[in-house]
Nucleic acid binder design. Structure first.
Length: 1101
RNA sequence: GGGCUUGUAGCUCAGGUGGUUAGAGCGCUACACUGAUAAUGUAGAGGUCCGUGGUUCGAGUCCACGCAGGCCCA
């Protein structure tokens, strides 16, 4: 007969490896997909990781979340295809290659050819693929690694080109300006990544100016605006105020020219600009040169009232058309520093640019040689010739070489000019943090650069609307972080001036008047053919043509009017790569149209919350713009994995956790279960390795022990779940109880997974296994398993526990795929009840409502409370559980409770070792009742008078309590007013039983009779004796079923009587066929029971 | 600077719609159990619910303003 495997020792890491092998050999993952052919699909998109770095523990977290729902949906009957992928382009790859080659960006094309450089990127990007594949397997992440999509693949890029072409045809792709960090010294724009490198922000002292902008048509009213970059004042095209900020007009004098002026600034900033000591000075007393300058607030307005006011251009070197030089409202204006009025220069600030565009304000531009609009600072960082007074000066003194550096910087010279013109209110040095170029160490400029954009703003409303249909976990990320981002959407800047990435497929003619966007390899070939005809190219490109730089740059096309066309040198944002994966992973629309249709949009995706503006956005944007659809219906944005103290993990700090080490030590299941159960995936997880150990001990250890317990006895009795399943109605109270709880659990866990709440699911399962199955059901029913014949009752116990174990395995399989598989196999190999080769091919359990019995669950809860209270009393009285006591008494105030307790009284009695349960009701006359107000109801009824009502109720004695119990209501007098209290307005309980040792919890009270009669004492002694005998059996290495003969010699009457009186009991418990009181030989064992020494001799029959 | 988020026992976390003894696990202490045994059970100690105001008869819970940590973006 088949046996359940019994284990001497748990080895969870070993189970992981063993099961992994089993899955591989039997192709279980493949089957879990192919067996579901024809079933409804559940689509999951894999956000591609980059394999140019080693995986960390946070990847285990992210991928566990993904895996759980794919496995769950598979068990729920869906077909879940999971195509893996690799993100291969991008700056980190470039930086790493540059580091390894010991070059800088400038060296590309000089020291190293673009070709060599790209080859190196291609090698580097997959460097750690093996580690990644290894982790994927070991952690049990089921994803198809055989046919992954790779973003540098030619087919992948071709899809990207086709998408770009579609956007281009919809007029959504355009070239424009954006304000970007720019290093004139290095001659290149910087990415935010580069700006975030350590050391880029440095404290510097700059000359700052609070400039005076003269209000149009006024005599001497000026708006004050502060800037830390005076060189941008010549490009000023507007002023911004906060709509809700209060502004004042102050009558005063200019400290440099001593002229009378009226200045307008935020009310909150007056104290920062005017000396309080001058508060009481009179304006008419002011004399030119006075240190203290008097001031007087003469008017007050809101920012929104100032909007629309015109002012005179401050430095009118380059003109601009109206509505330039107008006051507008900006949401970024604060009164933290400056004047509460912000100087706006469309060409030199991102906020400035945005607010200018919103208000249609032209910027200050000059024409270059080709007639294009360019800013007043050139790419070297010098003023253009049009700024006559300062033409050719660097705008930052740091850009000069040491020899050429002027004594007075441009900022200082502008300050002097403005002071002389009565346009400077205040000039001062100011120390602040300013970003510097990490390569040249010179300050950067915010500067308008050419870029290609996708006009996402044209789809803003659809993006916002469709986002509302997405189920975000947590909701706040969707509404807040993502929703707000969509509300303030700007066009997607697609350009990157780099080498390793997807090239922009746009060719532009030499005169910039014609352009063409290529949407496929075939199109490109057709264009190349034309170019060959025109004599610009000599050879057609081949099928294996690499769509990367530098090869694409060598292609010269021909325009309609016969000009040469060159590719725009930009690459596209790598986020376009990943956002396009729903299409590009299938090489859609060139191939696989049917697969794409079935797998778009995704039902579910998951990635880190840091992807909100990355992958989540690009997926959403492309789906909305190209398909008028969401890209995903459900999304989990998981949080960070921090170290145990809440610090970010980093290799530099040495606090990073190695996932292989953790899995190697604790196995994949405990690692996964810990991460999911400890905190919601969207909260940050403080990863503490001890927590993994705890999960292993507490949850998996308990489950393992429970299985082992089952296996031990089921093997002895040969239980194989053969024959009839015993009807639930014929099972014991506790069987029916645990099955009721089990079915409730199935319902709740199913719901939790379905709601994308994995943490709730794991906590439910864990509590069920440890508290209900192990600590209550198994503990109370232990004897049923090991005592007596293999009868119906025993069979029911086996069946019940088996069902619990099997169901728990299925419920927990999505989170702990290895151990649950192992448990499934161990159980099923004996019973053969399931036909599926793997738990991951079985169906998710379905709750049977007819098993759920809430009344029974209440009863058991009562039993648990009563037992716990009695234990507590025994403890207080120092009476051990092995000592039987005659009774407990329980006051019952209603019949229902009484019946409920009666239904489980056997259970209670055996658990706490008492002979009897006695109920005390009103008739007993010994009850002392306690009453307290039910605030929930009286709060609603009496509102502010609650206090008085509560005081009245609390003062009641037995007569009032009896009265309200009898009549169902009671009238009291509050403040001369009669109010009526109903029985629901109070809670009556019994706390005291005069003369007894009592304990209570909630409405349940227990009193314990602590009298130990001789008979009880003898019985207790017999129990102790059984205990010693059992120990002895174990010490002697006897088998559970061995029968024995026992001889005992003792001088004491108590001992002898005890053994005689309880002989039958002792023999049954210890499997003794005889128990003799007789002299023992030399082979005897001496035992001590509460100071009574006796000798006993034991022989196996 | 802005958006989002977190703050409850030494640690990790629960605490529908406000309701009077704020819970669990781990850890700690003590005890019990010893045929689940490198297990297990019971009990105990341990709290300014981040702070300050407010709303309310009543606030861990609602509102406002702060403080501290985190993420993203400027």
């Amino acid at each position: 007969m088949k046996k359940y495997t019994e284990y001497k020792q748990s080895d969870f890491a070993g189970i992981g490896e063993e099961i992994l092998q089993f899955w591989k050999e039997n192709g279980i993952f493949e089957k879990s997909v192919t067996e579901k052919e024809g079933q409804p699909t559940f689509t999951f998109f894999e956000g591609p990781p980059s394999a140019n770095g080693t995986p960390g523990i946070h990847h285990v977290m992210a991928r566990t979340v993904k895996d759980i729902f794919c496995r769950y949906k598979t068990q729920k009957g869906f077909q879940v295809k999971r195509k893996g992928g690799w993100d291969t382009h991008g700056l980190p790859v470039e930086l790493q290659v540059e580091k390894e080659l010991g070059i800088k960006k400038d060296d590309i094309g000089k020291k190293v050819s673009v070709e060599e450089y790209n080859q190196k990127c291609r090698e580097t990007v997959m460097r750690f693929k093996n580690e990644w594949d290894d982790l994927t397997e070991k952690m049990g992440y089921w994803v198809d690694l055989n046919d992954p999509y790779i973003t540098f693949d030619k087919k992948y890029i071709e899809t990207l080109w086709s998408l770009l072409k579609r956007l281009y045809d919809k007029d959504l792709l355009y070239k424009g300006y954006t304000i970007q960090p720019y290093s004139p010294a290095a001659g290149t724009g910087l990415s935010s990544h580069e700006l975030n490198q350590p050391g880029t922000y440095q404290d510097v002292k700059d000359t700052t100016i609070t400039a005076m902008f003269k209000k149009e048509g006024s005599e001497n009213d000026y708006f004050l605006a502060w800037t830390t970059t005076p060189w941008t004042l010549a490009a000023n095209n507007g002023l911004a105020v906060g709509a809700g900020i209060t502004y004042v007009k102050v009558k005063t004098f200019n400290q440099y020219t001593f002229e009378p002026i009226n200045v307008i600034l935020a009310k909150d900033r007056v104290n920062a600009y005017f000396n309080q000591k001058a508060k009481d000075l009179k304006l008419e007393d002011y004399k030119a040169g006075d240190k203290l300058i008097p001031f007087e607030i003469v008017e007050e307005y809101k920012g929104k009232d100032l909007a629309g006011t015109d002012y005179e251009q401050l430095l009118p070197y380059v003109k601009a058309a109206k509505p330039a030089f107008t006051v507008v409202v900006g949401d970024f204006v604060t009164t933290e520093d400056g004047t509460g009025i912000v100087h706006i220069s469309r060409t030199f600030g991102a906020d400035d640019y945005r607010v200018s565009v919103q208000n249609n304000m032209p910027g200050i531009f000059v024409k270059d040689e080709e007639g294009n609009d360019v800013p007043i600072v050139n790419k070297q960082g010098k003023y253009v010739d049009e700024i006559t007074d300062f033409a050719g000066m660097y705008v930052k003194n740091e850009y000069y070489s040491d020899e050429e550096r002027p004594e007075k910087s441009l900022d200082v010279q502008i300050s002097i000019k403005l002071k002389e013109e009565n346009r400077a209110f205040k000039v001062e040095k100011y120390e602040h943090s300013y970003p510097h170029c990490w390569r040249t160490d010179k300050p950067i400029l915010y500067y308008p650069l050419d870029s290609w954009f996708i006009k996402t703003t044209a789809y803003k409303d659809q993006l916002v609307e469709l986002n509302k249909t997405i189920n975000w976990k947590p909701a706040s990320t969707g509404e807040g972080r993502f929703g707000n981002w969509l509300e303030n959407l700007v066009d997607w800047n697609l350009s990157r001036s780099r080498y390793w990435g997807t090239p922009l497929p746009i060719w532009v003619s030499e005169d910039k008047k014609e352009q063409i966007c290529i949407g496929s390899l075939d199109e490109l070939k057709a264009e190349v053919a034309k170019s060959i005809e025109a004599g610009f190219m000599t050879e057609q490109i081949g099928e294996d043509f690499d769509l990367h730089r530098p090869y694409v740059d060598d292609i010269v096309l021909v325009s309609a009017d016969g000009q040469k066309m060159f590719r725009e040198p930009d690459l596209i944002d790598v986020w376009f790569d990943s956002g396009a994966m729903p299409y590009a992973q299938w090489h859609y629309p060139f191939e696989n149209g049917d697969i794409f249709e079935k797998n778009f949009p995704a039902d579910f995706i998951a990635e880190g919350v840091d992807q909100t503006r990355g992958w989540f956005f690009t997926l959403h944007a492309l789906a909305v713009m190209l398909h008028d659809s969401v890209a995903f219906k459900n999304v989990i944005a998981n949080g960070l994995v921090l170290d145990k103290s809440g610090n970010k993990m980093s290799k530099r700090l040495g606090n990073a956790v190695d996932p292989f080490e953790t899995i190697g030590k604790f196995g994949p299941d405990a690692t996964r279960w810990y991460m999911i159960s400890n905190a919601n995936p969207w909260d940050n997880l403080k990863f503490n390795i001890e927590g993994v150990g705890e999960v292993q001990r507490r949850f998996f250890g308990t489950l393992y022990n429970t299985y082992n317990f089952f296996a031990l006895y089921a093997n002895l009795d040969g239980f194989t779940f053969e024959g009839e399943t015993i009807p639930v109605a014929q099972r014991t109270e506790s069987d029916r109880w645990i099955l009721s709880r089990l079915n409730s659990l199935v319902q709740k866990v199913d719901q939790a997974y379905n709601d994308y709440e994995p943490t709730r699911a794991t906590r439910l399962i864990m509590d069920f296994v440890t508290d209900e199955v192990s600590n209550w059901y198994v503990r109370l029913n232990r004897k049923r398993f090991w005592k007596g014949e293999y009868n119906e009752d025993k069979k029911a116990a086996y069946q019940t526990l088996y069902t619990c174990l099997m169901t728990v395995a299925k419920l927990g399989a999505p989170v702990a795929p290895f151990y649950m598989e192992h448990l499934y196999q161990d159980l099923n190999k004996v019973t053969g009840l399931e036909t599926a080769a793997s738990i991951h091919l079985t169906d998710f359990p379905v709750s049977d409502d007819s098993f759920i019995n809430l009344d029974l669950e209440q009863k058991m809860e009562l039993a648990q409370t009563i037992s716990s209270l009695t234990h507590s009393l025994r403890k207080k009285e120092k009476i051990k559980v092995r000592q039987p006591l005659s009774k407990i008494m329980i006051p019952v105030l209603d019949e229902k409770i009484r019946h409920q307790i009666e239904a489980v009284d056997e259970l209670i009695k055996s658990e706490i070792n008492v002979k009897d349960i006695e109920f005390l009701d009103d008739a007993s006359g010994v009850l002392v009742k306690k009453i307290k107000p039910n605030f929930r109801t009286i709060g609603k009824k009496f509102g502010p008078k609650v206090k008085f009502v509560a005081a009245a109720v609390n003062s009641w004695g037995q007569p009032e309590i009896s009265a309200i119990e009898r009549d169902g209501k009671y009238d009291i007098d509050i403040d001369g007013e009669t109010v009526s209290l109903d029985i629901e307005d109070v809670e009556i309980s019994s706390e005291d039983i005069p003369g007894w040792s009592v304990a209570s919890e909630g409405k349940t009270t227990v009193a314990l009779d602590v009298t130990i009669t001789d008979e009880l004492r003898k019985e207790g002694f017999a129990r102790d004796f059984v205990n010693r005998l059992q120990n002895l059996r174990k010490d002697l290495g006897l088998d559970v079923q061995d029968k024995i003969s026992v001889k005992v010699s003792s001088e004491e009457a108590l001992v002898n009587e005890s053994l005689t009186d309880n002989k039958a009991y002792i023999c049954e418990e210890t499997q003794a066929t005889t128990l003799e009181l007789a002299a023992t030989g030399t082979e005897s064992h001496e035992v001590d029971i509460d100071g009574h020494i006796l000798k006993l001799e034991l022989s196996v029959n």
